[in-house]
Amino acid sequence: MALYALRKLVFFIGAVFVASVAIFLLIRAAGGNVAAIVLGKDATADAINALATAYGLDRPLPVQYFDWILGMLQGDLGQSFRTKEAVADLVVGRLSVSIPLALSGLLLGLIIAIPVGTYAARNVGKPSGAVLALISQIGIAIPVFWAGILLSVLFGVRLGWLPTGGWVDWSDDWVGSIRSLVLPVLSLGLIMAAVLIRYVRSAVLDVMNQDYVRTARAVGMTRTQALLQVGLRNAALPIVTIVGLQIAELIGGTVIIEMVFSLPGLSRMILANVAAREVIVVQSTVMLIIVFVIFVNFVVDLLYGILDPRIRNAA
């Protein structure tokens, strides 16, 4: 297990390094002169040069890269060109919105998908299974932001039960915060569920045909008992993997849902800075998100090794 964990750790560090180089080069290569981008079309050459010198943008690229990455490692994410605010301060305030939203969305997706997917697998070839497969196909085709729009029309505008957008801070009125999160979480969770149902269904189908389930049935368990007692633990492996892969999707969904419901989360901050051409803010925030996703996948890999001895020993 230690060797397996070490291998995964090396991969984690390598992945973070490659991703950081990629993001850095993407911004520098695609963006060209950062100072010119920040100052806009009408800036004079003198102003551009002054800004470039002030922020060390005229240094060689490798120097700038290591300066940025070493700063990141020490918790210094850089600062905004215009407001001079530290990126770290900008980010922290936003997480109290984005993290609850993303986690509850994922959780809701799993709570729906695991029983429904299992049911669909047990009823494969029957009309009820086919209907569930069709519903999941339609759910996959619905853009998450449109689901958000429809839900807020129904529950916000027509029924008036919940706010259609906006945010109350946790410290002011936590009930209000939760009310603001219900519809966003619902939109995110339902769309996640549609995707996850397919994977849960195929994982359970695989497990149902395994020898150990047949053995469990042979010693007298009912189909349901066999599935719950031996099957589900084995189906957990592929499901954990998929959750890891879906984290990237989840973050994409969160970005959009925050816009639909005007929540002051991380993505609104990124978008505002994209519009303002605050390259450093975008670069550092995006890097943080990517590190988070790679970290989740690292944890998933470790879990996978713990759940299945065959995997850690094969490695």
Partner: peptide
């Protein structure tokens, strides 16, 4: 594997910024 773990929506935002 590494590229797959980078959220596409976020990459697109970076490109749009630059």
């Amino acid at each position: 594997d590494i590229l797959l773990s980078i959220p596409g929506m976020v990459t697109a935002l970076v490109l749009a910024a630059t």
